[in-house]
Design a protein around this nucleic acid. Structure first.
Length: 108
DNA sequence: AAACTGACTAATA
DNA sequence: CTATTAGCCAGTT
């Protein structure tokens, strides 16, 4: 049950286009668990090391990097994103206005 | 089994 | 704009 949800979450994250980011809430919604972004975070926490999931494209609703505040991890994610063309402002926040992934882009 | 925790969000002050 | 509160639910203790 829950396991499949995680799998879906990873799947959704895989669908994030390069140069775009998605919020936890958005992923949760796409994964079929609206209003439960915490589970998305949990899914990423237990993220299988062997999996190639672009977790760095996942940010919180404020457009900021969410992590466990371990040494240098935030910077790592930032570098990875900048490499994909994402731009940060002076506060280290992503301009969601320009980079947020619109999953319902094709539906709309 | 009950309480606590958490890679969150949205609403309020 | 930032700070606080409540809601949410699986995993951990």
């Amino acid at each position: 049950m829950s396991k499949e949800v995680y799998k879906t979450i990873y799947s959704v994250i895989h669908q994030i286009p390069k140069g775009r980011v998605a919020t936890y809430g958005q992923i949760a919604k796409l994964a079929g668990i609206p209003q439960q972004p915490r589970r998305v975070g949990y899914a990423l926490r237990i993220l299988p090391e062997g999996e190639k999931v672009p977790w760095h494209r996942v940010v919180n609703a404020q457009g900021k990097i969410s992590m466990r505040w371990e040494l240098g991890c935030v910077d790592l994610q930032r570098v990875l994103l900048e490499k994909e063309g994402i731009v940060f402002d002076n506060d280290g926040r992503i301009i969601l206005k320009n980079f947020l992934w619109k999953a319902d882009d094709f539906t709309r």
